[in-house]
Amino acid sequence: MNPSLKLAWVVLLALELSFTQVWTVNVVLIVICLALMIWRRVAIKRLLWLTGVPLFFASALVWSLTLQGSASHHFLIVIFTRMFVYVYLGGLFTQTTDPLTLTRSLEQNAHLPAKFAYGFLAAFNLMPKIKAEVASIKAAALMRGQVLHVWSPQLYFKAILTAMHWSDQLSLAMVSHGFVEGAPRTHAAVIPLRHRDWWLTGGSLVLIQVGLFIGLP
């Protein structure tokens, strides 16, 4: 399925289900997402992780709502299943989409300006360097006997200086390699947006609306 449409589908559903209270639809979505993830051969370890985490948080949330609030049984079931829907929808998306294809699709299909698409990609490719930089900032401080914590301004100060330095260099490098903001571009890899994608997205959304508003519990 087209990554942009898939993203829109997942975000729209998560948003709508945050405001509606139909647990049967939640359960149906959980089953569908789980089936799709198994079909797409998501690792069993990842599936267990995706089940264990919401199980803990949903139980804790339901427990505190019972102790500290006045929620009905129906609402507790809705909240419990809702947490699983969030995690499974997100899991289905991240486990079946890679960031590069998503960015390409956002540029080509969703018409995100190229400067954003390539700017994001350029920065995301620095991820390993950024991890190493945080470690080296901490190590450098340790050599002077300073321990930098999550709440130490110095840690952020140094990280921000590096970020400014790198973004200057990276944008200059891209411009010197011929990147022009707003200029028309051709694409080496074309991400297809088929009629089938639209029908699947639209059709499933309509079905879910029917499920949400015909009075299921």
Binding site: K115, F116, Y118, G119, F120, A122, A123, F124, L126, M127, I130, K131, E133, V134, V150, L155, Y156, A159, I160, T162, A163, M164, W166, S167, D168, L170, S171, M174, V175, F179, E181
Partner: peptide, 21 residues
């Protein structure tokens, strides 16, 4: 307006924060 440098800067900042957190 947003230019390439600002876009890269905001993304790198976000990743730094993500890594620290």
């Amino acid at each position: 307006a947003w230019h390439l440098r600002d876009i890269i800067l905001v993304t790198i900042l976000a990743i730094f924060m993500g890594v620290i957190f």
